[in-house]
Design a protein around this nucleic acid. Structure first.
Length: 118
DNA sequence: CGTGTGACGGCGC
DNA sequence: CGCGCCGCCACAC
């Protein structure tokens, strides 16, 4: 799997009403210092066939830094519709909503780490 | 090939 | 607390 494919795989597992951060995803896909690339992957996520809940990815402070890239329903509205409370463009109670892939993902595809030089 | 550009984050000051 | 710097790496040109 490529970097983007690994990122998409993780994002697709985020449940409704929960969020995770660019940095956490970057760590999980084996590129801990490439959080920016996760954001870039989210840009490309629209072009994917499968549904990728990109609105559930926020920055480490809970800010909706990617909101400019959502067409139609806004990023904030999508999150609020899932029961998440947002004030001043920021997720409230981030700690209790945070979905950490390292704690939550039990099984990864065999091919997940294939392209990774560990 | 080279360079610029990010939906970021960690660290230093 | 708020900057600024820089590593990171996929991709467009």
């Amino acid at each position: 799997m490529t970097f983007n494919e690994r990122v998409f795989f993780v994002v697709r597992l985020i449940p409704e009403g929960r969020v995770t951060t660019y940095g956490m995803i970057a760590k999980f896909v084996g590129a801990p210092k490439a959080a920016r690339m996760v954001g870039w992957a989210m840009n490309r996520s629209h072009e994917q066939q499968e549904y990728i809940p990109a609105h559930r990815v926020v920055n480490r402070n809970g800010l909706l830094t990617g909101k400019a890239h959502f067409k139609g329903e806004s990023m904030a509205a999508r999150l609020e519709r899932e029961g998440i409370c947002i004030k001043e463009n920021k997720i409230q109670q981030l700690d209790s909503l945070l979905w950490d892939p390292f704690n939550e993902i039990e099984i990864v595809p065999k091919a997940f780490y294939d392209d990774l030089n560990l």
